[in-house]
Amino acid sequence: MALLEHFKELKNRLIKSLIALALASVGGWFLYQPVIASLSAPLEQISQEMHRSASLNYASIASPFEFQLRIAIEIGLVISSPVWIYQVWAFVTPGLTRKERKYTLGFMAAAIPLFLVGVFVAWSVIPNVVRALLHFTPENASNLISADDYLTFATHMLLFLGIAFLVPVVLVGVNMLGVLSGKAILKAWRITVFGVFVLAAIAAPGADAFSMFLLALPLLVLFFLAIGICLLNDRRRARREGAKAEENEEEANQATPFEDLGKL
């Protein structure tokens, strides 16, 4: 394709992605009330338990509208993620080989549900994190939290755990490209396990250790499953390279036919 045709293709993909985002954001606008009720639930619980003011604070008259608009767009981004991720893949895929296309399609099929699972887990643990952090507020003090700061905190939590669930897919992709071997990834298992449990302790700071293990278990299962896939891929690559080396050696050991020598 000519450069101008590539730009036209990119424009069409962007328009389709924006249409999907706009439609999903309309749905997000109507989902605002249950979403904000769920996000505000920890503040209401703190207010009742500790008998002090704990609520979201809107700094200006237009802030509630801006807050609802931002949440609607972010909900729309999550809902429409399969559409715009597919549009990105469809734009890139003509320049890939058939094998690379197969790999990228497999990574997309694994990455999208894993990211959504990570977002769901984050959504489930945000109330625990908020409740734990607000317990550090001194007595006779109030928690009048800026709505913008609260939304930023919740968004970061959602993205952080969503990306954490994508790490196994990234590890397999790096291994497929030959950048890291499965053994090299396996050597860092102690640091990874420690990091996962630290993350789980922060995200699920309950009095019991069960909630921490419940959050850490799926991350560890995904990590070691990714290592197993990397090790199998290394073994398959070694067999393939060994067979190729044997073929080259057999060809090198064969005598050149007399007719070919005459042509030379």
Rank of each mutant, 00 (worst) to 15 (best):
M1P: 01
M1N: 12
H6K: 02
F7N: 10
I19W: 05
A22C: 12
A24V: 07
A24H: 01
F30N: 02
P34F: 06
I36Y: 05
L43H: 04
L43S: 05
S47W: 02
S53Y: 14
A54K: 12
S60Y: 03
S63V: 09
Q68A: 14
Q68K: 15
I73E: 05
Q87M: 04
Q87F: 04
V88F: 07
G95C: 13
G95H: 04
G95V: 04
E100W: 02
T104I: 11
V117R: 03
G118D: 07
G118A: 08
G118K: 08
F120N: 07
L133K: 01
L134I: 11
F136D: 11
T137F: 02
T137Y: 07
S146V: 02
V169K: 04
G173V: 00
G173Y: 11
V174L: 13
L177T: 10
L180N: 06
K183Q: 05
I191E: 09
A200D: 03
I202S: 08
I202R: 14
A204P: 01
A209Q: 11
M212C: 09
L220T: 05
F223M: 10
I229R: 05
R237E: 10
R240V: 05
G242M: 09
E247A: 13
N248T: 11
N248D: 10
N253K: 15
P257F: 07
K263N: 15
